[in-house]
Design a protein around this nucleic acid. Sequence first.
DNA 1: GCAAAAGTGTTACGAATACACCCATGA
DNA 2: TCATGGGTGTATTCGTAACACTTTTGC
Lengths: 234, 234
Amino acid sequence: MGNYYKDHDRILVALDCIIFGFDRNGLKLLLIKRDFEPEKGSWSLMGGFLNRDESLEDAADRILHKLTGLENVYLEQLYGFGEVDRDPVERTVSIAYYALINIHEHDKELMDKYSARWFPIDDLPDLIFDHNEMVEAAKSRLRYRASHEPVGFELLPEKFTMPELQILYEGIYETELDKRNFRRRILSMNILTKTDEKQKKYSKKGAYFYRFNEDKYEEKVDKGDNLTFKPIKL
Amino acid sequence: MGNYYKDHDRILVALDCIIFGFDRNGLKLLLIKRDFEPEKGSWSLMGGFLNRDESLEDAADRILHKLTGLENVYLEQLYGFGEVDRDPVERTVSIAYYALINIHEHDKELMDKYSARWFPIDDLPDLIFDHNEMVEAAKSRLRYRASHEPVGFELLPEKFTMPELQILYEGIYETELDKRNFRRRILSMNILTKTDEKQKKYSKKGAYFYRFNEDKYEEKVDKGDNLTFKPIKL
DNA sequence: GCAAAAGTGTTACGAATACACCCATGA
DNA sequence: TCATGGGTGTATTCGTAACACTTTTGC
């Protein structure tokens, strides 16, 4: 059966990236304005096609790099989208990846080149094809991740305050949290280091900066400690 | 940019199915013996290629049907595997799906046709390509599903006993459970109906048969009730 | 009457929740 | 001095875990 492989269709494999970022106002998504048909001018996820000589992972990295200039970013495969008519031009299977990046670190020039813009997660424009569905899947995956490991730190600057961290989790879970309970639970994980600097941008009193302690974190993971963070109701 | 699509590689898209079944001895996996090169004679997951005119989901259904004769089976996409050299013959991206089937219901003739066999989940042979990896991913996904919804019922006959259900969960979580706690937690979900028949195959006393109550289950899902079942340590 | 599996209840502990006031500072 | 956001502690509830004996019946 040497021709077992022969008689089958070769198909375009695309990759689309759901790119999460975070700033003081909450969780955001990076979208681009398509400059080619079909749907030229519509908002869309950043995407591209898989080359024969690269892995899915590498292709996703490449595409993310193309838009943000960033490397070594938290990137996780989300789901394969494969409805027959999802792309009106040609049959395409798209593997969606989602990324978490620090909103202040990416390349501004590339943003212009692709007419890219950050949108608040709860105020997104309508997207092309099945990209809305991809975004929903990514939001729910992010919630899942965040409730199983302290994943949100990829989205934050190196030093961050408790109020900032709380805003991030509130964005991820789309709910409000009680700050006393939030602090207690986060701090009880023992994976943060308090600095003695204060962030004074947003209040007169100022909020202490914390730093994610990767050593402690690895240690806990090795020990099999529970680092989950389930959402708390207000 | 009308040729945006033109200059890209078309690639073989495969689907591989991780098929879980269950009997009194625990959780099992359905594997086939490849009758074509490469790796003829090795154990493998059931797979096939995506046709241009079918969705990923439809293709996975088709391939599962081909081996088991079953339709309307619980089938969920798992992950896209896309290392460049994962298939030595030609560049192939494989989307893995996992299925839960009732071990007593499938077509025996087809089993012979494909030299298929059930293997206990904790005693699997070495598989071709990246199929071992796929199985590991499926096991962990199954654990996740089982801890979020009462998914295991797809694997059981219509009527089943508490000891059987417990064996199933023990297989999924690869751990032993305390039967008192197990019964209490399962029954407190209120989605089972006790019959007055008894299964007397495995003990003199006999164990009551239960039935999964889909109406009650739907009702609870609609109400947003918590139906999670986290593993309990012994 | 005994072996083998089915069935049952109570207590103890720890995690999650609810909740309200003081602190530091710049304007 | 006051307005604004940052920071803290306690009591209660509820879910989870630990644990051992009785019941049924075929042989």
